[in-house]
Write a protein that binds this DNA or RNA. Sequence first.
DNA 1: TACAGCTACGAAACCGTTTTCGTGTTAAAA
DNA 2: TTTTAACACGAAAACGGTTTCGTAGCTGTA
Lengths: 339, 339
Amino acid sequence: MSKKINIKIIAAELGVSPSTVSKALKDSHEIGRETREKIQAFAKLYNYKPNSLALSLRNQKTMNIGVIIPQITHHFFTRVISGIESVANQKDYNLMICVSKDLHEKEVKNVEMLTNGSVDGLIVSIANETLEKGEFSHFQRLVDEDFPLVFFDRVAPNLKGDKVIVDDETGGYNAGKHLIEKGKNRLAIITTPEHVTVGVMRERGFKKALDEQNKYYNQNYVIRVEEKFDIEKQIDQLFQLKEIPDGIFAVNETYAAIAMKCTMKRGMQIPRDMAVIGFTDGVISKLTTPTMTTIAQHGYNMGNKTAELVLQRIDEKENEKLPYQTVVIQTNVVEREST
Amino acid sequence: MSKKINIKIIAAELGVSPSTVSKALKDSHEIGRETREKIQAFAKLYNYKPNSLALSLRNQKTMNIGVIIPQITHHFFTRVISGIESVANQKDYNLMICVSKDLHEKEVKNVEMLTNGSVDGLIVSIANETLEKGEFSHFQRLVDEDFPLVFFDRVAPNLKGDKVIVDDETGGYNAGKHLIEKGKNRLAIITTPEHVTVGVMRERGFKKALDEQNKYYNQNYVIRVEEKFDIEKQIDQLFQLKEIPDGIFAVNETYAAIAMKCTMKRGMQIPRDMAVIGFTDGVISKLTTPTMTTIAQHGYNMGNKTAELVLQRIDEKENEKLPYQTVVIQTNVVEREST
DNA sequence: TACAGCTACGAAACCGTTTTCGTGTTAAAA
DNA sequence: TTTTAACACGAAAACGGTTTCGTAGCTGTA
């Protein structure tokens, strides 16, 4: 790779000092007009652009925001990233995106790597393994030194810090209510293992809706999917029961789509014999047949809000610290053909 | 934000020089055992980690790879990113992912930002707008200065550089052949506008399959979707024809799923009245009812290969340059229920 | 003539790290 | 006792910028 042009080279080439070049390029009138124009012309000709590492080091400011997500192939996360991106870009920030693959060790490494000077602030959705272990010291350190840090979606309850979360409980509640309003009685839920907070909250809201209407919350109607095993088989258990449910709430889009497949495989009609509602912000729901009713998560808005919070922390002066915020993004029911 | 600990602080605190600290932390036996252990203990206690900006500047090596993609919410691209990530991480590289949103201007900015010191190499899938305009000077500059650069999927035909592409033509050919083998006669294609290379190549292969079997390539059976307008309406035109096709090849998953919806809306049976095959690496195909036959693109492999190429260029010595490579990733037909 | 003030530039420090090249002290060898 | 080598550490330069401060040279004024 041929060496990139820099200020020293320009200075040497034009017989002036580096400081003169630097000033001339910023149009400082400390530099005579003739010299200034000569330097600017030269720089333009050779397409000079200042080295961002040097700038960051000097200014103690990178104009980068780090983002750590558990999975990049999940549509929800990419929606959030889009939302973050849009706000960040408006303020000339760039994103460094890292993927923890839901592994604790990778997450720790990512955090260390990003916070050693590479970014001005960090946005994190916590890895499943970290949540399972309850091992948050890598985040605690950042909180302790007031490093700008915002969590979204998968957050740690006992950790201080700014958070942006979906109103999962109300979402679950509305899902339950919606199914009940559609005249369904035997309501099942397809959810995640218990260490995944979002699943727990959605389930809690769902149960609340059932309780309110004096519907029985049948434990046989609760499927906790372990992703390491065959998902379809686990969901299909609902259809092995003596009394098959007539309404299903799935805490994500994939589970909902699979539930719909299982239903149709049995020759049952959606929504007549079985109503299905998903919790998602994805692309699948509009493309299934029938289309899927969902609780919309508004990932893009979440990203917007998250980015705003982290930028706020970055700009914050040492002596005017705001208390930690938790922003709750509301969901809403998007009714389609599956209910 | 409280100031992060650095070598100077450690040095001052322990009454030694920065160079001594630096050497001690690398376990150099130039430093006496006692001093060494004292410094190491202190560093560990305060969780010292070297500043990566300073390291990068000093070493002229960032251990970052830049990735510019047109859209982050497209599953194919996130699959490729996963593939890149996995190879990069093995060699201790991190990713800086930027999104061009298919806009030329954003792409140019991203390229400039990343190549001004932030990354050691760059991976790009070119923005649609750039392909339309044919404006590649921002890449040409990089090629001229031998900056490690690898394109994938959306590449520029007249630009030198390493490329990783899908064998779109053969993919399209196999899609056509598959439909013919299923006994279909009136074959339609749903593709992209003509400036999108991948669409053109897939169409070319498809046409070749039809030609070989002396099937008529009916221009009414060619839909070029403009994404700024209602996609479903455009696709639905196929169903307004006097003679409705009995087989559809869609160059991506979304178009294929919409085609399936349109078919079922008409009360037609898949695959009996209409066979549909998509070109994709996505999640939708397994979740539609019926499931979708696809030409699998192997995005993850593509990412692997792309990362390998860029790492190879990064490691390359000045005097042992290899000629530019174009790696072609083969596709294969994944038969499901829609054909 | 003397001094002030302006113009136009350069020197040097700094951001955080690494590394080369001294150098003062001590111990071993001659 | 003198020379030499090893040891343990520090000074300084370098990576590529920015910025503060200093100053040479000129002009204008008293």
